[in-house]
Amino acid sequence: MRIAIVTDAWAPQVNGVVRTLQALRGELERMGHEVLVVAPDGFPSMPCPTYPEIRLAFAPSARIGRMLERFGADAIHLATEGPLCLAARRWCLSRGLPFTTAYHTQFPDYVAARTPLPTSLVWRYIRWFHAPAQAVLASTPTIERTLRAHGLPQVRPWGRGVDRALFRPDGPRDDAMPALPRPVQLYVGRVAVEKNIEAFLASGRPGSKVVVGDGPALEGLRRRFPEVHFLGARSGEALGAAYRSADVFVFPSRTDTFGLVMAEALACGLPVAAYPVTGPADVVTEEVGALDDDLNAAVARALTRDRAACVEYARRFDWRASAEQFLAALAPVGEWRTAA
C-alpha cells in the first residue's frame, strides 16, 4: 500500500509526535508499504508565535495535492492540525477523497497555557478539523472518551511502542550521573511552559534533579534553578543511558495525550512518578510507578518499585502492533479517486 502522511511536525523538531511518526514510517516500510511524508521542509515557513523553535510551513492546497497524486496514495493520513494539514484537508474535501486524522496533542490546553484564548474556542476548531475524517486516531482510552465527548464519535485506538534496541535495562550508563547525590530524579522532554516542569524542579525532594531536553523555557529555568542539572537534548544511546542512570522518572505534565518518554523510561527499568491525569493514567500502574496529586508523594512511592517489573510491563508497548492499528484505521482512496 502507498500511504501518504501529511504532518506539520517533523525533524529537526524533537518531540513525541515526530518520534511517533518516524517510528511508524520505519515499521510500515519494514512491513512492505511505501510511505510518503509531506512535512514542513521544502515549504516557506515562519516561526510559531510563542514557540520560535517550531516553524509553521505554508503551501497551497494544489501543490500538496500534486504531491499526493504523483505518489499515487492509496490512503491519506493528516497527522496534525496545522497549516500543511489544513491545506491537505481542503484538497481532499474538494475531491471527495477520504482521509484519517490523529489527535496527538492536547492542543486546547497548550493554547490556553500560552494565550488568553479559552479552551472551548480551541475545541470548536478541533471538532471542525477532525469532523470530516473517516477515523480519528487516539493513543489512549481516556483520549478516546474525551474526543467522543466533544462530538467526534469516529475515534479509533492507536497505541505507541518502544524501540527496545535503544531503550533496554542492560545498556551503558551516563558517565556523570553516578556521582550525583541519590536519588537521581530525571525529566526528559520539551522544556516548555505546558510541560509543567517547574512543579518538579520546585519540589523539595532530596537528591538530584536532572533535565534532558531543550525548548523555549530552558534559559529561564536554568536561571531560577541553578542547582538542577540541565543536560540538553539527547537521543539514541545517550538518551537510553540517561534513563538507565536515574532512580526515578518524573513526568509533571498535565497536558499530554500519552507521554512516550514514560514508556521509554519503563523499558529501561526506570519507575515513573506523575500526576493522575490523562496520559499517565493510561500508561502507569501502581506496579511500575505512582500517580499522586502530590508529586513528592508520587516520587517517594515510585522509588520503591521493582525495576525488573518496569521492564516486563513495558513489553506491552510495541511499534508493530501500533502500525497494525494504524493500518486497520486507514480509509482507502482508490474508488474515490476514480469517481473524482
Rank of each mutant, 00 (worst) to 15 (best):
F107S: 04
H77I: 09
A73I: 06
S61C: 07
I76T: 08
L93V: 13
W91G: 03
I64K: 06
Y110S: 03
A57G: 03
H104P: 11
W91S: 05
P83S: 08
A79P: 13
L97C: 07
R66G: 13
R66M: 10
H104T: 07
E81A: 10
F71L: 05
Y103P: 07
A57T: 02
R95N: 11
G65A: 06
Y103W: 14
F107V: 13
Q106I: 00
G96S: 02
A59D: 08
D109I: 00
F99T: 02
S94W: 08
A79D: 10
R70N: 13
R70L: 07
I76L: 12
M67K: 14
R90F: 03
A57N: 03
A75W: 07
T50G: 00
F99D: 05
T100P: 05
I64W: 06
P60M: 12
A62C: 06
L78Q: 08
R95T: 10
L84P: 01
G65C: 09
A75Q: 06
C92K: 03
I76D: 08
F58L: 14
P52W: 01
P60E: 15
E81L: 05
T101R: 13
A79C: 10
P60L: 13
L97S: 09
L86A: 15
A102L: 11
L84T: 04
F107H: 12
E69Q: 14
T101C: 14
F107E: 03
F99M: 08
A59M: 02
A88D: 10
P83G: 09
H104V: 09
H104K: 06
C92P: 05
F107W: 12
A102F: 08
A73D: 05
H77R: 12
R55D: 01
L78N: 06
L68D: 06
H77F: 06
T80A: 02
F58A: 09
F107Y: 15
W91A: 09
F58D: 03
I76G: 02
P108V: 05
A57F: 03
A73T: 06
T100G: 04
R95K: 13
P98G: 00
P52N: 01
W91K: 10
P108R: 08
F107L: 15
R63A: 15
Q106Y: 06
P98H: 01
H104W: 08
P98V: 00
R89Y: 09
P52K: 01
I54V: 14
I64P: 14
R95A: 07
T80N: 04
G82T: 04
T80R: 02
G82S: 02
E81Y: 00
A102I: 10
T105G: 02
I64Y: 04
P98A: 00
F58Y: 15
R89E: 06
C92W: 07
F107Q: 03
R70Y: 00
S94R: 14
F58T: 11
L68Q: 08
G72F: 04
D109F: 02
W91V: 10
R63Y: 13
G65R: 11
A88M: 10
F58P: 00
A62E: 15
D109W: 02
A62M: 08
P83K: 13
